[in-house]
Amino acid sequence: MPSLFLDGVTVRYDGKAGPAVQRAALTVSTGDFVILTGRSGCGKTTLLNVAAGLVAPSSGEVRVDGRAIVAPGADRAVVFQNDALFPWLSVRDNVAFALRMAGIAERQRHERADALLALVRLDGVGDKAVWELSGGMRQRVGLARALAAQPNFLLLDEPLGALDALTRERMQTLLLDLWASAEAGFLMVTHGIEEALLLGTRVVVMAPDPGRIVHEIRLDFGRRYAAGEPVRSIKADPDFVSARADLADMIFQGEPA
């Protein structure tokens, strides 16, 4: 089972006084759904980009199974907040992008892309242009595109941040379904407290100035959903309600009121 280790990662940006992330340590293994959350400017997106290999740490390192990571790779696919789809490609070719880069033949690419579109409940839109789709549909195309690479780790940077509340709830259960069926470790940045609790097997709370990890909690609400319990009953559980209050306290701890 592959594991992604962030070991004492510090990131300094040019021209900034303090580090964006200071000495952060984190492990994501297959089957984990790790949530990064915290107030704005706490470095959670930076940390995710370090895991992706898109930002090089100033000190510390990222390892996958003991191997140091220095560049992005298809084993760590990324889903972006603004979906970052390629508007010049059809929906199907967007999903098949990683397969095309890997030199897989067109017919196989298309078959696999159509299967993935069905997985994210977007059957039959393969031939459409991406700009014809709604925000929620685009984000699902982004998910299918990332999954096409059959990554060991799926890194999600506030993928639901720009969606309306109803779409967002539907996307949360879709993410849980994908997580339960995929053989991968998920690492996701979010601002949503309920979202963090519902999806995460572990929630990592960060705080700003300098960006650092301050808390880590373990949860099993997502597993309960995967075992068949409805979301509404999970959210009504007193454990969930008190966890929500606790997590809010952790996030806003030290916040000048």
Partner: peptide, 14 residues
């Protein structure tokens, strides 16, 4: 767009 370039790199593009 930097995000699209990053997306392509993270999808294994050379």
């Amino acid at each position: 767009s930097q995000e699209r370039l990053n997306a392509a790199r993270a999808l294994g593009a050379s």
